[in-house]
Amino acid sequence: MSELSRDALLEIVRDVWERHDPVPEHLVAAMQAAAALADSDLDLELMELVERSTELVGARGSTSYTLRFVHGDTDLLLRIAVDNGRSRVDGWIVPPEPMTIRALPGERPDTHEAVVSESGRFALTDLPIGVLRLRLEPHDTARPAFATPAFEI
């Protein structure tokens, strides 16, 4: 009975731990998402900033400014506004194209996202104040995603 080989013993150890401290069910999917996001982020082509308005200071301390980015044939116009500590980004894609826009604050995936309307418009509200980038994911999967360089709210 004591003929258990080293391999057999280690197999018992594996089985026992797999049963008593199993991998949490959500873990693989969560790690796949995190790795895929980091991966796609690395290869992202950046849009080029071609225009930037001077900052407009409005009444009651609100501020807004506009940015214009270009990538290939796609133009992206952004109006960034902060009013009473609340942020709002209005965007306009020319020519209009179905895509999902995601805000990437720093390295973390975040839930701020919007789908571009038929007229090419989208809006993101209540983004955290600070530095962020927008990631543009065309629904046409043959088109790779691209992103704006970092800008500040």
């Binding site: 991998v23 796949q32 895929a36 991966d39």
Partner: peptide, 21 residues
């Protein structure tokens, strides 16, 4: 192939779990 990364994560995450725990 991005699916390669998915598969790599699926195969190795359980191993990493037990090593780390």
């Amino acid at each position: 192939d991005p699916a390669g990364l998915d598969d790599l994560v699926a195969v190795m995450t359980p191993v990493l779990w037990h090593v780390v725990r």
